[in-house]
């Protein structure tokens, strides 16, 4: 495992911890999109089916369990926790799941490595992850005044994707025959979705100001 991959995974882990910190200690999920969190839960549930069939490493297994557990517990907190759920911006978080899930599933039926249940679901999870952030970005755009932890959360998620791209470039040059179009293209699309957010994030850092997206 190279340094970019490790840094990417740790950044992903940090993003989840920041979100759990906000939810668990501040008891607030204001500005967090339940739709995005539910999509991530679907992403991990469909991608990590190989937990039962293939063993890669202890690191791999532990991280998968952490991402599965955290994504489902975040959804639980926002939907069921008696205090947290009150802070959920339900009226603002209006993105429809099936607008995202359905096209991804159809795409996975068309473009996959092998036509088996596991491979189609794996491709589906990659396509879905690529666009799962959209409800969150729409919500940020609508709430405009973004609190620090929410801003950090989205920033860390974007950084994780950027580091994965560096990881693929590194692997391409260091490993023989490392070519993986489905992963690369969906990963690139996913990272590009953060470009606009990154722009305003760095602008706000430069001005020492609060992160505010334009109307």
């Amino acid at each position: 495992m190279n340094i970019f991959r490790l840094a990417g995974d740790l950044t992903h882990l940090a993003s989840v911890l920041v979100l759990l910190l906000k939810i668990h200690t501040i008891k607030s999920c204001a500005g967090i999109s339940l739709k995005t969190q539910e999509l991530y839960a679907i992403v991990f549930a469909t991608r990590y089916l190989d937990l039962f069939t293939t063993y890669i490493s202890l690191y791999n297994t532990l991280m998968k369990l952490i991402f599965l557990g955290s994504s489902f517990s975040i959804v639980w907190y926002i939907r069921k926790h008696k205090i947290v759920r009150r802070s959920y911006d339900k009226d603002q978080d209006t993105f429809r799941h099936y607008f995202i899930v359905l096209p991804c599933f159809v795409l996975a039926l068309i473009i996959h490595e092998k036509f088996t249940v596991r491979e189609v679901l794996w491709a589906f999870s990659l396509y879905l992850e690529a666009v799962a952030i959209l409800p969150q970005l729409v919500l940020l755009q609508r709430t405009r005044n973004i609190d620090n932890l929410t801003g950090q959360y989205v920033f860390l998620l974007g950084a994780y994707r950027a580091l994965y791209i560096l990881n693929w470039i590194y692997r391409y040059f260091t490993e023989p025959h490392f070519v993986h179009w489905i992963t690369w293209i969906s990963g690139l699309v996913q990272t590009l979705l953060y470009a606009d957010f990154f722009y305003y994030y760095f602008q706000s850092m430069k001005n020492n100001g609060k992160l505010q997206l334009p109307a």
Binding site: S57, K64, E113, Y164, E175, H177, F178, H180, I182, T183
Partner: peptide
Amino acid sequence: NPKTAAKDEL
């Protein structure tokens, strides 16, 4: 194995 290379990622 190039087919499964990305499967060791999260």
